[in-house]
Design a protein around this nucleic acid. Structure first.
Lengths: 344, 344
DNA sequence: AGCTTGCGGGATAACGTTATCTCACCCTGA
DNA sequence: TCAGGGTGAGATAACGTTATCCCGCAAGCT
């Protein structure tokens, strides 16, 4: 790592920031008048206002939002406790946009799929007195939030419901998505379809595996050895793949339960990836530049994010409104991999 | 979108949050004593402390961090103004982790590559009195920050330097990266190499294009028609590709100047992608599952993020220290696409 | 002229915390 | 018995805003 020290001698040390009082003195008016100008109170005269404005820009004054929040009692911020900040997160982006339109800033924190970190992040948000929290729940139990909820904290769960406490939630239609994937493969001649997905201890893993089993049962297909939920680790994926594609009646097609699994499966299939019919739950960037293109069940992140903020704002306005769960439809995007015929 | 209204009657309305004074009354002690207990001041007696603790948990009290910040004069928060929140952002993740270890929370805001939004985001952070800002600069000029910088705001630019004001910066070694890419292709027999990259109005686009030209000049190769900087739009990429691969001496290999360009190029190449030698600047998830695997020049996001926070903390401790620019090495990851031989 | 009205603008008290100062108290030593 | 120190805990003043109250002043009315 190369370090280059610039010629400049740096800054002039930390001066204290100008406060409203400084502006008032500079403009020769009372403190309260500066406040009025900042808040565009129409009762202040035009030439006096411009004098204050001049003082504001002369001093480079910017109001301290913490003090405003403290005084006003509202923070204008929503917390977003998301699983991951490193990977693509279209829902967070949608939340950010919707929040901005509602005049709210977003305090995003990563939970890294860790229950302790989720709790730490959420409690930190509470201490900051955010106006609401959007959470991708990790843990099974969110009892630690019951006091905050009772105090009126608007909380919206995204992707999975909260456990132990009642809160608004925005979920994707997991069962419908699995159904779409299954029907698409069946439509293209597949009778033996395998499923590899997330751990059933996780809500989405549970819902999708259950939906898959229901599809198989409904179509009268063979059930045993076709459903493989579990943690996303290279070893387990490899074993699951071996199980699905071996035995007397090997699968001819595969449904993967989330993006991570899909990618790990593709990694294992390697050069064979083009030969097996595959539909993945979750779209991801670059799914379209694979050969063949990857057929996916895509969640509608934009709608999910916006709905989450809508629910947050609604609860904020009326803390007593009934708890609501919104299910957002998913969409099948056919790109080729799900339309491959069986080997025969 | 399906809506389901749960049976529950919702919450009990918004109660006011308990304050330190409430705890003091509950425990029958003075306000100041509660503060001492919260801050683990050892001068408070054991049984009194436990009595206060009991009152705290009975009331579900959590200190108001805004008031603490106001009083203490520090916010324990760093702002992160990043280009994008929707796509993968390993640097942000590294910043988040490093900041957490330093006891700082991260207020992440997206600038969406928009100069106005960058400014709005940064000013909003300033109003929140963050202890420092990590920024991926968008605009050419950051003069609007000069007052804040003079007031001692620690500012660290990441990926690109700030314009018009002096600030610490963490940059990748763009020239070395382009050099690595060029040498790798030359090593595998390529003599005519093309470059498609970002607009030269953008710092990284400028640096990388310049480095590429220097490589070509140094190896005595043909320069004209080989360097194609510009905005990343499907139309321009398509035109650039046509230009590079046509004419009397078409290129046999390609360097792409950033991840966006790489992906757009792959999209255009389609089935031919496996036939052209390609090295991309920037690694991205899934680059390894393409066929052939994509050879890339990878930036060290983890080091970049950590260094940014280190610089921030250092400047916070000593506002007068000289401005510093740290250059982080890049790494070539050979996965196949950069090792393809020329067609002959 | 004296009174009301309206309006621009100033003093002051919150908001919830922490820092400084003060004080009451207990224990020790002479 | 009393001085002296150390210790635990309370009163009070900030931090930078905004909200409430109030006042001075000019104009319009009788």
């Amino acid at each position: 790592m190369t370090e280059r020290v610039a010629a400049s001698s740096g800054r002039s040390g930390r001066r204290k920031r100008p406060t409203m009082l400084d502006v008032a003195r500079e403009a020769g008016v009372a403190l309260r008048t500066v406040s009025r100008v900042v808040n565009e109170d129409p009762t202040v005269g035009a030439q006096l206002a411009s004098r204050v404005q001049a003082a504001i820009s002369a001093l480079g004054y910017a109001p301290d939002e913490r003090a405003q929040q403290l005084r006003r009692g509202t923070s204008g911020t929503v917390g977003a406790a998301v699983r991951n900040l490193a990977d693509a997160h279209p829902v967070l982006s949608a939340v950010d946009n919707a929040a901005r339109e509602a005049g709210l800033a977003v305090l995003a924190m990563s939970t890294e799929d860790d229950e302790q970190r989720e709790r730490a992040a959420v409690m930190s948000m509470c201490r900051r007195r955010v106006d609401g929290i959007v959470i991708e729940p990790i843990g099974m139990s969110h009892d630690y939030l019951s006091t905050e909820l009772a105090a009126g904290l608007p909380l919206v769960a995204v992707d999975r419901p909260t456990g132990g406490v009642e809160a608004d939630a925005v979920l994707s239609d997991n069962a419908a998505g699995i159904g779409m994937a299954y029907r698409q493969l069946a439509l293209h001649g597949h009778q033996r379809i395998g499923y590899i997905g997330d751990d059933e201890r996780i809500f989405t893993g549970r819902e999708r595996a259950a939906a898959f089993r229901a599809c198989v049962a409904a179509s009268g297909g063979p059930l045993d050895g076709m459903t493989h939920p579990g943690a996303v680790s290279p070893g387990r994926i490899s074993a699951a793949l071996a199980a699905v594609f071996s035995g007397p009646t090997p699968a001819t097609a595969l449904i993967t339960g989330n993006a991570e699994t899909t990618i790990e499966v593709l990694r294992h299939l390697g050069a064979d990836a083009g030969r097996v019919a595959l539909v993945g739950f979750d779209d991801f960037p670059l799914a379209d530049i694979l050969r063949p293109g990857l057929t996916v069940v895509a969640q509608n992140s934009a709608v999910i994010g916006r709905t989450a903020i809508d629910l947050l704002v609604a609860r904020s306005a009326d803390p007593a409104r009934p708890v609501q769960t919104v299910t957002v439809p998913v969409e099948l995007i056919a790109r080729g991999s799900g339309e491959l015929p069986p080997p025969d």
